[in-house]
Design a protein around this nucleic acid. Structure first.
Length: 495
RNA sequence: GCCCUCAUCGUCUAGUGGUUAGGACACCGCUCUUUCAAGGCGGCGGCAGGGGUUCGAGUCCCCUUGGGGGCGCCA
């Protein structure tokens, strides 16, 4: 077992969109490493892109983290000794370091415009130039520089990447990864409006916030040598790095919006439990090396180890998430499930908020008999809608099978009249009635159960018919049977 | 084009030189059952290819192929 001491990890989302699966995956691994090895988690908002960052996204990202149960020890809402934890409030720090780099000659001003750069880049690539693109500003003479300066031309600041050097990233998961600095361009650390970029802020803050382990997606591997270079020339601490495997869509490309639902929120909306999400997310890039497949976040924190992480990217598979959700829906407190049902029913207009309150006991009983089938909240539409609204249509195949028999209408009429007088009108009473029907008239499920289920629910599947009748109540059952009987007589007459 | 990275069933994965290559999801049967679901039982299906190393390679090395990521005044 790898031994880590005084671990400080961080997650550093930029509030430019909703928290998606990839973010949640790396956030979880940061959390897991800190929790497993007795460390601290820092949350840092990387809101340097003023164009796209919003306070609203910040709020939503925090809400998603809280929902998932991923907490943090330092950062927004928590404070800490290494703040501020919003990069937008750390401008002075970045300015100082940029200045330092500029003064020491480790960075230089680039006067190229965006258009010039785009053009040059295009040319370089189409001509198949093997060298990384660098503009002429790196080699600009002092005279020229002074001239540009006096003209007041806008400039960005580029890091002067050393030539002919090698830089080795000792990835905690992947081992040494070697880079030739000739393959690294002179990246921009400050934009022409003076604002710092990720390559600088992220690296500097990790050092300043005393982050010991930077755990982030594989897509950052090529950024890491740049940031190591920045910190090294600045005399700042260089943390350990661990690059996690990416999550891919079904088409095996980086998970993005075009793959459909990718934000944590969207899955929450669909009715997935945070337990399932965390459980699933943890298994994308880690596994316990035994047959256990269900873990709470606490259990994960205990079982987790870096050695058991995998390097290969994995494809997101909702079927698996769905399966886990079925398990957690059965496993969590039933009262929580009832609460979720109530919220869902009200939200979808099945019941009003008042009804939900007064009929809570009744809803709870419906949950009890439907829980096995409702693997995800939205299954309510499929399995339990008939409790809350009238039957609008009958399943086509079911109707063909159960409503087209010769005595179908008569059988339904008979059950209807029996039901009118059965006492007590509950599961046991109805079951006794059915047993009697079978004994006295020899009528089985095909005559008296399946057609009745179809009449009452419109479906050929669902919970126990007797319990379902009890919960529907006598009046509703009689009315629906009556309607079905008429329906059958009408349709058979027209044939 | 250049750099980096990864590679066991369709998917998530176990495997650390000797296994009938194991599990889970999905799918398909059977079973249970008033239906469906759940459960139980079973089935389908995999080491990308080629060279080495070795008595012996899914496991080690090399090459090829394939996948992924990066090459922004996004993060």
């Amino acid at each position: 077992m790898m031994e880590l001491n005084n671990v400080r990890t961080r997650f550093a989302p930029s509030p430019t969109g909703r928290f998606h699966f990839g973010n949640a995956n790396t956030a979880l691994f940061n959390w897991l490493i800190a929790r497993r090895y007795g460390g601290v988690v820092v949350l840092r908002m990387e809101d340097t892109d003023t164009e796209r960052s919003t306070k609203e996204y910040e709020r939503l990202i925090i809400a998603d983290l809280e929902w998932l149960g991923i907490d943090w020890d330092e950062g927004p809402l928590k404070g800490g000794d290494f703040g501020p934890y919003y990069q937008s409030e750390r401008g002075g720090i970045y300015e100082d370091y940029t200045k330092k780099l500029l003064e020491s000659g480790a960075a230089y001003k680039c006067y190229c415009t965006k258009e010039e750069l785009d053009h040059a880049r295009e040319e370089a690539r189409s001509s198949g130039s093997p060298d990384v693109f660098n503009c002429g500003c790196r080699a600009m003479s002092d005279d020229e520089r002074i001239k540009k300066e006096s003209e007041g031309d806008a400039f960005s600041v580029r890091f002067m990447t050393p030539k002919n050097d090698r830089i080795v990233l000792n990835d905690l998961l992947r081992g040494p990864i070697e880079f030739d600095t000739n393959d690294i361009d002179d990246f921009i650390i400050a934009r022409s409006d003076g604002s710092p970029t990720f390559l600088l802020t992220n690296a500097v803050d990790d050092a300043l916030m005393k982050i010991t382990h930077v755990v982030r997606g594989e897509d950052h591997i090529s950024n890491t040598p740049k940031q190591m270079l920045v910190n090294r020339t600045l005399g700042l601490h260089v943390p350990e790095y661990l690059h996690t495997a990416m999550i891919l869509g079904q088409d095996r490309t980086k998970l993005s919006k075009r793959h459909g639902a990718v934000s944590v929120f969207q899955f929450r909306e669909k009715g997935y439990l945070p337990e399932s999400m965390v459980n699933y997310l943890a298994f994308l890039g880690w596994n316990p090396k035994d047959d256990r497949e269900f873990f709470t976040i606490r259990e994960l924190a205990e079982a987790f180890s870096i050695e058991a992480m995998s390097k290969a990217p994995s494809v997101f598979d909702e079927a698996r998430l769905h399966y886990l959700n079925a398990y957690w829906m059965k496993t969590i407190d039933r009262s929580r499930v009832v609460k979720m049902w109530v919220d869902y029913l009200v939200e979808r207009g099945y019941v009003t908020a008042d009804e939900a309150e007064t009929k809570r006991g009744w809803i709870q009983r419906i949950v009890e008999i439907s829980a096995e089938r409702v693997k995800i909240l939205s299954d309510i539409d499929e399995y339990a809608d008939f409790f809350f609204k009238d039957v609008e249509s009958y399943d086509e195949k079911g109707a063909k099978k159960h409503f087209s028999k010769e005595n179908a209408a008569d059988n339904i009429a008979m059950v209807k009249s029996e039901l009118a007088s059965v006492e007590p009108f509950n599961h046991d009473g109805i079951e006794k009635m059915y047993v009697r029907l079978k004994e006295e008239k020899g009528l089985g499920a095909n005559q008296t159960i399946h057609p009745v289920r179809l009449a009452l629910t419109g479906k050929t599947f669902g919970p126990s018919l007797f319990e379902l009748m009890e919960l529907l109540g006598r009046d509703v059952c009689l009315a629906r049977l009556d309607r079905a009987e008429k329906h059958i007589r009408e349709t058979s007459a027209s044939v």
